[in-house]
Design a protein around this nucleic acid. Structure first.
Length: 206
DNA sequence: CGTTCGATGCACT
DNA sequence: GTGCATCGAACGT
């Protein structure tokens, strides 16, 4: 079942939590890829200094102020596309950044796409659990680009589905890779999952 | 282990 | 001109 707009028109932390275990699907000319979401971060409002809405409305962050249930894709460090889901009622700028997936379908296509990166030339193939590890890597593996910015997530090529995957153990920890707003624990990860990026947040049992 | 740093494009001031 | 919601390699301890 494809997640409806109402799923996204809710408090961003609830959406972030509920996106864990949902399946991101991208249908491209070269084939379909899909992966289960295992890591997300919430960016909430103009008062969140790490949120792109912090400076107020601009050309770039316009999608954050638009309707929920759409993609907000932007280019970071001139190299990496980042994919977010816009949340909250329209006019309240907030989004959930998709940071990592467990690859489910189209792994061969993912490997080919990852291998195309200049810094990957002449290196061994990317291991399966690293194909979609990290926001930049995941977009490259899935084929998500700036072209997908503002796209509704209820119809192709970019959709998010509930396939009934349950992840009882979710850990909330500090967002990573940012220089401000680190006080908020707005990063949700599946406990102990191999595909989660960065240092594994600590959890009971390991 | 840890930290530093280059690649690379564009919105923003 | 500055500074990134990164990645991965190259160093230092």
């Amino acid at each position: 079942m494809i997640l409806p707009v109402d799923f996204y028109r809710r408090p961003t932390l609830d959406v972030a939590r509920d996106l864990i275990g949902k399946v991101l699907v991208y249908q491209s000319k070269s084939g379909t890829t899909a992966g289960a979401i295992v890591e997300v971060e919430a960016y909430i409002g103009e008062d969140d200094p790490a949120c792109h809405a912090a400076p107020g409305p601009t050309v770039r962050n316009a999608p954050l102020y638009g309707p929920p249930g759409r993609a907000y894709v932007y280019l970071n460090y001139g190299l990496h596309d980042m994919m977010n889901c816009v949340t909250e009622p329209e006019g309240q700028p907030a989004a959930v950044l998709i940071r990592a997936l467990e690859p489910l379908e189209g792994l061969e296509l993912m490997r080919r796409r990852r291998a195309k990166a200049k810094w990957r030339k002449g290196k061994p193939p990317v291991p399966d659990h690293e194909l979609c590890r990290g926001p930049g890597n995941l977009c490259r593996a899935m084929g998500i680009t700036l072209e997908d910015n503002k796209r509704p997530l209820q119809r192709g090529p970019l959709t998010i589905h509930d396939r009934g995957i349950a992840h009882p153990e979710i850990i909330w920890s500090q967002r990573i890779g940012i220089r401000v707003g680190t006080e908020h624990h707005w990063r949700a990860t599946v406990a102990g999952h191999k595909c989660v990026s960065g240092k594994a947040p600590k959890h009971l049992g390991t």
